[in-house]
Design a protein around this nucleic acid. Structure first.
Lengths: 179, 179
DNA sequence: GAGAAATACGGAGGGTGCCTCCGTATTTCA
DNA sequence: TGAAATACGGAGGCACCCTCCGTATTTCTC
């Protein structure tokens, strides 16, 4: 799955430069709630075509922008408890508005190829879930996908308030204990 | 707030007819997830201008379509317990896909005039909330708005699964008991 | 260093949707 | 039945999505 062609051409310089610019611009434009792809291209000083060549879908761009953070969450999942980890995710969603958009596609029904990021994210949470179940600290009728869904639900959509989301997560965590 | 002008002209016949057609068409078009206003107008066999005259905003249309259901929820809130009521709301959201869209604007930050529907909905849930608090069956750090938010969150956005939403609501309800 | 081949770039263009505005058609009232 | 009031329709301006392809740039080869 790595180098197949013996003769690999060096990637063009403008390619790399533009990719970087796009990521930078996207970070900027997605700060607010709704940012258009055209705005990203404009901000990056790059044609719209270039944007699409680099990032074929909106999600691809989102996930590229937040790749670092997502990876961080993935890593933390390895040695944190379920509750703490969920709190961390929520906080990140509250801080970086775009994280919600980056994480939401984890469940896109089609999601074409279900980006690697998404798969890893799901794996991470599945592991956390399994651990909690094994410990007996989690009721058994809740799936790992459910957990993710809840966090997205708490931060998504109109009227979502990060401040309240924290409280609601605690309520939910209370309910999560085995009956 | 009622009849101010002494000389009230009878509303035109086409007005009423078109309004009816639009509601009918909207019911139809909004069955699926994403329905455009233009599609509604087209289906109704009516100009786009007419649609906007009748329903200045998307929410106005949503809420008009689901007015009956929303009123039903409002009424049930009067003599049902919090838990049962929330289950009913969730079920309705699962059944009628558009209900989510109809209820979500309850929290639109601007919401221009915060439609009467929305206000009544909030009042209803506030009453339920107050009753539950008085009974001591609800932890006191959760607001009535929170409750609404949760129900929307559970049904909103990508990957929302009505079947799972029921389970998650139960988890949440468990967490809702005073500690 | 020059020319060919590979690669990336930009943006025009076609499609959809949102919303406003206003000339025209219909309906009500006197 | 005609004037006044009212509603209608859809063109038009704007934004966004995404594709496609002629042109420009860069890398490689000799």
């Amino acid at each position: 799955m790595g180098e197949e062609t013996p003769k690999a051409r060096k990637p063009r310089a403008d390619q790399l430069r533009n990719r970087e610019r796009l990521l930078e611009a996207a970070r900027e434009v997605f700060r607010g709630e709704g940012g258009s792809l055209e705005a990203v291209a404009r901000t990056a000083g790059v044609g719209i075509g270039t944007l699409y060549r680099h990032f074929p879908t909106r999600e691809a761009l989102f996930q590229a922008v937040y790749a670092r953070e997502v990876e961080g969450l993935e890593r933390r999942a390895a040695d944190e408890g379920l509750a703490d980890w969920m709190r961390a995710v929520l906080e990140m969603m509250a801080t970086k508005r775009g994280m919600v958009a980056a994480l939401a596609p984890v469940f896109e029904p089609d999601s074409t190829f279900f980006s690697e990021q998404s798969q890893r994210m799901r794996a991470a949470i599945a592991a956390l879930h399994a651990r909690a179940v094994a410990e007996g600290s989690l009721r058994d009728d809740v799936t790992s996908d459910d957990l993710m869904r809840v966090m997205i639900g708490l931060s998504y959509g109109p009227g979502a308030d990060p401040a309240r989301a924290g409280v609601l997560l605690e309520v939910f965590l209370d309910g999560l204990r085995p009956r």
